[in-house]
Design a protein around this nucleic acid. Structure first.
Length: 744
RNA sequence: GCCCCUGUGGCGGAAUUGGUAGACGCGGCAGACUCAAAAUCUGUUGCUCGCAAGGGCGUGGGAGUUCGAGUCUCCCCGGGGGCACCA
């Protein structure tokens, strides 16, 4: 773990900045601590499989992020015989590799500084002890790793290659991780850039294992030039004990290719007869050979690590465990749960207040009654969010869940959240649900059937000449420039970013609601951009939304008195049988809008739904017919409009409903409108006519006009004839109700 | 470094999934109303040549497939995100 020696607490990777604690600025150490973990790795395969099979309504991006995070790798354990070891160390060193096919090129072995063998060697080697301590001082942050040099310490041990005479010196190396694979690796400089860099540094040979099929052998001239360049670190190639020529193409760049389609040529490959195969095939051949000859076995490794849930914090749920000298670790008995936090804690010194508390941690052992110590670590904050949805189904139940309730409600039909939880909350909750299933608390595997990841709200950033961040209301914009409101100091306009308190690019919803009302704020947010994308908050955009809502109100208010009486039961009045053409056209517009908006909302395309509503309003305002039927059609249109905007602007919609003469409550009493199918289809269609793929005319035809008639109509169009320049049509493509393309 | 997404007017974004590119909104321009302004309304608004009629060009760049490409394929460039001593 990352340990902050000043604050005396574990830090998450995100809280380590340039190798130092984010608050204390002290160099972070790596420390081995007794911590509680949840064995999420036991579900690695299950979690991975369900990503593909059970989460169709999750965004592909989130599924991919989880897939990468779980990080499944097919590979092999290889056991190398070790020479020069002490009597009680194991005979063989086991390494993990995803590329057993490159075994020919192995020229060294490397251990993690925390590998048991390294620890053992360090006991009698002060220099190695110092080297390991140095490795520990380097933080685990990205920046620290970037800066850290790849360093190795050459031990007196040597590994034996399974079938080649190559000697394999054993290093302890700072870049080998203890918690992935076996904590030991074999190095293949020709097939891995990092191994190549390492080989250069410690003057290890580079042995080719495979090369592109189309590569040729180097000419003597090239070898000479190559040798001149790298004479201090010669590249040699040995296959089956026979000396080969130097390999210029791996001089500086390792050849790393793991294609499952592209074959490569293996230059030696003692584990198979074939020479030209894909690496994927070669990997399986190598595993076969290892297993048959007792040098190792095929395996699958995951990058996913167990979930460390211990926190040295006061604000958390105490981990319900008691440590007893005599009985070991004892769970707190059911009847003593929940363990409650003491309220008389102090925060006057660094570290965990629960640990400092004079009495809280001293308890009797539930098993033997002797003196025992309560666990003072608390659970990670992600614990609670991992199962709240199950608890919410029956919040007052005496048990964690009530099966009849969770069976009824779960899984969650539609979950909405930010993508930043892709490999935090969303992964933990999936794991936790599986654990709850195993414990009989729920019956489902997956907590969230559908997932929608919405974007962030963004705003421009502003700073004064001193570099201080300014709130949007502290500045005044004029075109491209901006000045402070008070002192007319110049303001630098920065790029738009996710709203945050630290950058002050926030807009207080209370102000917006005060000036424009909540309906306007909602309407703008929904209309501006698709919800999965970031939203750029702009004053002018809000103004526009506000203007539109004013327009809708005026339109309904002006029209209401001339309409036929409202239908007490709901939408619309009975339509007269002999509707005018204009009225029918208006009805079509209404019903097409109902259909479109309903579909858009179901697909989360709120901005498109808003656009359609705009179109209907524009259409209604342009309507200037005055026959009797139009008033019926208008009532239907206005009431439908009111219903369609209700989910987005509920206050306005309720007012409109009332103004339209209704006594009922729109939100509670009135059903969502249903489009009449016959009215959602136009009788005439506009068909585009192309000549050689270029648009030359559009023609109006009745819907479903026969292809030969559409063709004739297209060819008769003067603009089309002009474009054809008197030539005969060689070919005419007709797509019904859509397009006619004339090829001349 | 590896993996993924993305690129459309001045801006946010549409485009029935291979069939009229730019819906709708913001912004701009012109006009009406007004003593004037605000508000509102009308028209116009991809670029370009043209008095006009009418052309030409156009979805980051280049090639390809197709009667037809924003949409499909390949290469390149830009932007964003995820992972990262993972052997």
């Amino acid at each position: 773990v990352n340990w902050d020696p000043v604050d005396q607490t574990v830090l998450a990777n995100e809280q380590v900045i340039d190798g130092r604690g984010w608050r204390s600025d002290a160099p972070v150490e790596r420390r081995k601590l007794a911590q509680w973990f949840f064995r999420i790795t036991a579900y690695a395969e299950d979690l991975l499989q369900s990503l593909e099979n059970d989460l169709e309504r999750w965004p592909a991006k989130v599924r991919l992020m989880q897939e990468n995070w779980i990080g499944k790798s097919r590979g092999a354990f290889i056991d190398f015989a070790i020479e020069g070891r002490s009597k009680n160390s194991p005979e063989k060193l086991r390494v993990f590799t995803t590329r057993p096919d490159t075994l020919d090129g192995a020229t060294f072995l490397a251990l993690s500084p925390h590998h048991p063998l390294a620890t053992e060697l360090a006991a009698s080697d002060p220099k190695l002890t110092a080297f390991i301590a140095e490795c520990d001082r380097v933080g685990t942050s990205e920046a620290a790793i970037e800066l850290a040099e790849k360093k190795g310490y050459r031990t007196t041990l040597a590994g034996k290659h399974p079938y080649l005479p190559t000697g394999l010196p054993v290093f302890v190396a700072n870049f080998v991780l203890m918690d992935y694979g076996t904590g030991a690796i074999f190095g293949v400089p020709s097939g891995d850039q990092r191994d190549l860099d390492f080989a250069r540094k410690y003057e290890l040979p580079v042995i080719e294992t495979y090369r592109p099929l189309d590569s040729r052998d180097p000419t003597p001239d090239e070898i000479e030039r190559y040798q001149a360049k790298f004479d201090e670190n010669p590249v040699v190639s040995i296959g089956n004990g026979t000396k080969r020529e130097s390999l210029f193409h791996i001089a500086r760049t390792a050849f790393v290719d793991k294609s499952d389609t592209q074959k490569v040529r293996y230059t030696a490959a003692g584990f198979m007869k074939e020479r030209e195969v894909t690496p994927i095939v070669a990997i399986e051949k190598a595993i076969e050979w290892l297993e048959k000859n007792g040098h190792g076995e095929g395996t699958i490794q995951y990058r996913l690590r167990d979930w460390g849930v211990s926190r040295q914090r006061y604000w958390g749920c105490p981990i319900p465990v008691i440590h007893c000298e005599a009985c070991g670790i004892v769970p707190v008995p059911m009847d003593q749960l929940p363990v409650e936090l003491p309220e008389d804690v102090t925060f006057d010194k660094p570290g965990n207040p629960l640990d400092h508390h004079p009495t809280w941690k001293h308890v009797a052992c539930p098993t033997c009654g002797g003196n025992a110590r309560r666990e003072t670590d608390t659970f990670d904050t992600f614990m609670e969010s991992s199962w709240y949805f199950a608890r919410f189904c029956s919040p007052r139940a005496p048990t964690p869940t009530e099966r009849s309730d969770v069976d009824y409600w779960l899984p969650v039909d539609q979950y909405v959240g930010g993508v930043e939880h892709a490999v935090l909350h969303l992964l933990y909750a999936r794991f936790y649900t599986r654990a709850m299933r195993a414990g009989g608390h729920v019956a489902v595997d997956e907590p969230f059937e559908g997932l929608f990841t919405q974007g962030m709200v963004c705003h421009e950033t502003y700073r004064d000449e001193a570099g201080n961040w300014l709130l949007p209301q502290e500045i005044e914009r004029t075109g491209e420039q901006a000045v402070t409101i008070d002192g007319n100091r110049p303001v630098e306009i920065g790029r738009s970013e996710k709203m945050s308190k630290s950058r002050k690019n926030v807009v207080d919803p209370a102000n917006i609601i005060e000036v424009y009302g909540a309906d306007t704020a909602r309407w703008f947010m929904l209309s501006d951009s698709p919800p999965e994308r970031d939203l750029e908050w702009t004053e002018s955009g809000v103004e526009g939304a506000w203007r539109f809502l004013q327009r809708v109100w005026r339109m309904v208010d002006d029209a209401a008195d001339a309409l036929p009486p409202a239908n007490r039961d709901g939408v619309g009045a009975a339509m007269p049988a002999d509707l005018s053409a204009a009225a029918t056209e208006l009805r079509r517009a209404t019903h097409k809008t109902i259909k479109g908006v309903s579909e858009d909302i179901a697909r989360f395309h709120f901005n498109k739904a808003v656009a359609r509503i705009h179109e209907l309003v524009n259409r209604l305002q342009a309507e200037n017919s005055s026959d009797a039927g139009i008033h019926h059609a208008r009532r239907e249109a206005l009431e439908s409009l009111t219903l369609l905007i209700q989910p987005m602007v509920p206050h306005l919609a309720e007012e409109l409903w009332s103004r339209l003469g209704h006594q009922t409550l729109l939100a509670a009493d009135v059903a969502w409108p249903v489009a009449e199918a016959a009215l959602t289809i136009d009788e005439a269609v506009t068909i585009a006519v192309q000549v050689n793929g270029k648009l030359r005319a559009t023609i109006e035809l009745p819907r479903d006009t026969a292809s030969n008639e559409a063709e004739a109509a297209a060819l008769a169009d003067p603009a089309v004839q002009r474009a054809m320049e008197g030539k005969a049509a060689r070919k005419v493509i007709v797509v019904p109700n859509r397009i006619v393309n004339v090829v001349v």
